[in-house]
Design a binder for these strands. Sequence first.
DNA 1: GTCGCTGCAAAGTCTTTGCAGAGAG
DNA 2: CTCTCTGCAAAGACTTTGCAGCGAC
Lengths: 156, 156
Amino acid sequence: MSNVATNFTQRTINYDQLLGDFKVLLKKNNLKFTIQREVILETLYNSDEHLAPESLHHLLQDKFPELKIGIATVYRTLSLLEDSDMVTSLSFGAQGKKYELGAKNHHDHLICTSCGTITEFVDEEIEERQHNIADELGFTMQDHSMQIYGICKNCK
Amino acid sequence: MSNVATNFTQRTINYDQLLGDFKVLLKKNNLKFTIQREVILETLYNSDEHLAPESLHHLLQDKFPELKIGIATVYRTLSLLEDSDMVTSLSFGAQGKKYELGAKNHHDHLICTSCGTITEFVDEEIEERQHNIADELGFTMQDHSMQIYGICKNCK
DNA sequence: GTCGCTGCAAAGTCTTTGCAGAGAG
DNA sequence: CTCTCTGCAAAGACTTTGCAGCGAC
């Protein structure tokens, strides 16, 4: 690969650390650590997919059938995690959001409009440029997201 | 402003031309040119906002009460326009999409998380970089979108 | 005239909320 | 024990669809 700083992301923290952060967060807000919240965090951690609430719910039902986790709990937990900046949501194309754990390095998305595959990438030049632009416009940048849509190698 | 290629967008075509394109599109697909479709196009053209279907519907009811345009027609026309690449949809934050006419220059969005204001910008360096990245990953780029979230000048 | 379009209302999705019992601290 | 969570079901919000009459061509 050339001089393009295009690197695939890596998980930056291990699960125990993530779980610890989650427990701290809960404690700080007087919330309880429940088995449902734990398996949702764990499932997000172990998934390389960008999960829609419904897909996550199915995964949970498959992996933890005895818990009978309700879809409402999935939505509530995702909102909680998103509000606490532990997960990020993306809304591509049609309707519905997809969630991914924020405990990965920051990255942007390349989305194949044919097969729907999402590829992640990071480009330092763009990252830096975004900061500059925000500064120039008197904006305090909190976050950003970028998507490139096209046809992937396999679909061509 | 410094050397940052940050320019605000300008409308690239006039309304008559846009309307002409729309008529051609309709004819090509054996669709009819109706007053409802025309006022929707016109309202989008005259709006500097990114419009949600509901907001657009309200605008239309205010401006053309005698037409009694139904919300279903708004949705159907927006889908038509989006499928034909005449409008683009964005889905920020919460739920629901917002639409804008595609007949503007390409631009990206800076979104204030406090007041919700959307500022548009273009940066050539980023544009170019996106093409390079897509190429490197064997991707044929069709489109892209970028959002920067933060706190705007006024809200600070 | 023909055939697509429209408004209306009903039906679908996706998401949130109310509630009573269950469970964490 | 207390007070939050959970699953369920009902309610909401947003979008799509079926239909009969209307209107563009």
